[in-house]
Simulated scan of single mutants.
Amino acid sequence: MSINRFRPEIWSANLLVALRQNLIYSAFINRDYEGEIAEAGDTVRITSIGRPTISNYVPNSTVIVPEQVNDSQRTLVVDQSKYFAFAVDDVDQRQAKGNVIPQAMDEAAFATANVIDLYLSSFYTSIQQSNQLGAITVNSSTTPTDAYDKVLVPLKIRLDKANVLSQSRSVAISPDLHGCLLRDNRFIKVNESGTSEGLRNGVVGRAAGFDILLSNQTPTTGSDSVVIAGNDRAITFAEQISKVEAYRPQSSFSDAVKGLWLYGAKVVRPDSLASALVTVS
């Protein structure tokens, strides 16, 4: 890559695409209030409108008095700012097969996605109490069906009782819990699951109304792994690459790229998430 041919707008767009492809917990976010983000510390005001009362109507009798709609305001603060910076020596660039800068940019996006996933998963502490299952032990060797029966189904029930839309529900689980599902005949036997994906490729796909997402970034509390389920109405998220620059460091013969990432999130529907603290034994 020549510095003269570097186009910040194109690289910023490519980085955002690569990052969003690698995010797992984006299943629980929306970008409704992303707007214009220019600097760390920018804020987005979110106004929520209360639900009106539904009343009976009697023709020629009912006098309709409109109620005053209540509203509340939350503030989404873009308080997360992260950067990356790397250099490729001219000798390495010359000897490498192909252009290594785009590969390094992809790696930067992947690493940033991991950081953002950790940030998004930390919002499990804002889930309303009635949607928290608490501690659950799953025995992967003797009763692998526990993963479905004791975790996924109860999470679905909690969301159902909270009137959470059934469309676009997802659940993020750890590799250990994912392995339990792959020991459950209901997901690997073709005659029971209707597909050979579980047996051949280790893919569960959907279960209990959820898209099953495998993550190495599931939060932990003690020995428990936090399983988060819900939909994209729960958290609003805003991000932007503020700057991407290519330059020639004075201290070496190399091409270097640095970038600044700005983002922030806010839980706007704590009832649209549910959680379980799972120990896989």
Rank of each mutant, 00 (worst) to 15 (best):
I241N: 01
R31H: 06
D89F: 05
L273W: 00
V204M: 13
I188T: 15
N70R: 15
R51L: 14
L133H: 13
V63F: 13
V17F: 02
N30Y: 09
S251F: 03
E34M: 06
A207T: 03
R233Q: 07
R158H: 07
V44I: 11
Y124L: 05
V138I: 15
V44A: 10
Q93R: 11
I136Q: 04
S166E: 07
G202N: 10
S166N: 10
G209S: 04
A256Q: 06
G41R: 03
L213Q: 01
A96C: 04
R233A: 08
I3A: 01
V153C: 10
Q250L: 08
D79T: 09
V278M: 00
K266H: 08
N191V: 15
E197V: 12
L120G: 04
L76H: 07
A113R: 00
P52Y: 09
V100R: 03
T221W: 15
Q240V: 00
L16V: 05
T195F: 13
A18M: 05
I49A: 11
E36D: 14
E107A: 01
N56C: 10
F110Q: 01
S223I: 09
V203L: 15
F6S: 02
L120I: 11
F86Q: 04
N22E: 05
N30V: 12
T53G: 06
G134T: 12
S26Y: 01
N231Q: 02
I29L: 09
R186Q: 12
Y33S: 06
S122D: 01
E34W: 02
T279R: 04
A229N: 06
S170K: 03
N163P: 07
V244Q: 00
L133I: 12
T236Q: 01
I3Y: 01
R200K: 10
D149M: 06
V138K: 09
I29V: 15
L277V: 01
F84G: 04
N163G: 11
G134W: 09
N99M: 09
N163Y: 15
L155E: 13
N4E: 04
A109M: 03
Y33L: 09
D255Q: 07
I157V: 14
N30Q: 09
D32N: 13
N131T: 04
L199D: 02
